[in-house]
Design a protein around this nucleic acid. Structure first.
Lengths: 180, 180
DNA sequence: GAACGATACGGAGCACTGTTCCGCTTTGTC
DNA sequence: GACAAAGCGGAACAGTGCTCCGTATCGTTC
């Protein structure tokens, strides 16, 4: 059995997941390792010890994000002023997360079965959460899967095109759904 | 109108297209520019003058390959001992070509309309050629499009997996078609 | 709380790649 | 043959992935 992790190692792992997620959103999943290391305030060696390949890191961030996104749903519902506002904020998190998700396909070119497994996990975990937010917001004319997939599709393509801002379109979609 | 090209420039362009095609098959479309330059026996500057971006080069090779593949059909039919042998050799060329084709999608991320245009050209040009080879080989239970697409699908995914050899499967497919 | 492996960290250093730039060579023309 | 224009080659620079090992920190034992 593996020996227990040292406290600083465990801490760094969490720091790295958060930093990598942030950098992925800002610079894409192909961001230089150096940038992630700098964001996390650690050396490059530390990243390579925790995540030997880029795919390892992307997968770990992916799982971490799915989990965070899932937990954020109920939390936002209880914290925000209205369910509608909670939904909007949740969708914003979800879009951040999609950056990682899309990068995953490239990072995992050699192992597509692993990708499908993660994708199934993603749907199982987030579908119900999204469903709760929709129900609380009084939206009944769309299924969670359809909304998530629609948002996902709006986000495909390169992010460096100033003429196309997925978030703007998604906001409009929500306006439509919420009858704003 | 543009002035006529110098003879050496025109020669180099052809040399580069052939060299790049070869290197793409051997090392993938992400092969270092240096490797292509070495294969062609020219300097790197020459490549950049002819093809400012990697996408330019890949597109040019693509068109060149489609043309070569199309011309090879009738030629193989008249040269090889049997139509069946011509078909097998043609399919082999076709598979080489698919490496470039798959790389194209990545190289052209920003310009998907250009991709579809090229794809249409590809189908128009090669479909009939493939049809001729099939007819000459006495195969009537499959359409050119279906065969080409099947071969294409067998080739998706990274080439660096020793456990999966598309050419082996394609050979088996042809065995089945030809009743060997 | 001191001492001491074991564990983890940081970042310099190396290898490799894309891209530019400019002195030199080849070509076409007169 | 002479001369400009066009083209060529590859050194040089900048950015990146990845390794390696001296140093720092942690957890344990007394």
């Amino acid at each position: 059995m593996p020996p227990r992790k040292r406290a600083d190692a465990a801490r760094n792992e969490q720091t790295l997941l958060a930093a990598a997620a942030e950098v992925f959103v800002r610079s894409g999943v192909d961001a230089p390792i150096r940038e992630i290391a700098a964001e996390a305030g650690v050396g490059m060696g530390t990243i390579y010890r925790h995540f030997p390949t880029r795919a390892d890191l992307v997968v770990a961030v992916y799982r971490h994000q799915v989990e965070a996104c899932a937990e954020a749903g109920p939390e936002l519902l209880s914290k925000e002023d209205s369910p509608q506002q909670a939904l909007r904020q949740w969708v914003d998190l979800f879009v951040d997360f999609l950056v990682t998700k899309h990068g995953l396909a490239n990072a995992l070119q050699s192992d597509s079965s692993g990708f499908e497994q993660l994708h199934a996990y993603f749907l199982d975990r987030l579908g119900p959460v999204c469903g709760e937010l929709l129900k609380a917001s009084g939206i009944e004319n769309i299924q969670p899967y359809e909304l998530m997939r629609g948002i996902g599709n709006l986000c495909v393509g390169r992010g460096d095109d100033a003429r196309y801002d997925p978030r703007r379109l998604i906001a409009l979609l929500l306006d439509g759904l919420l009858g704003a």
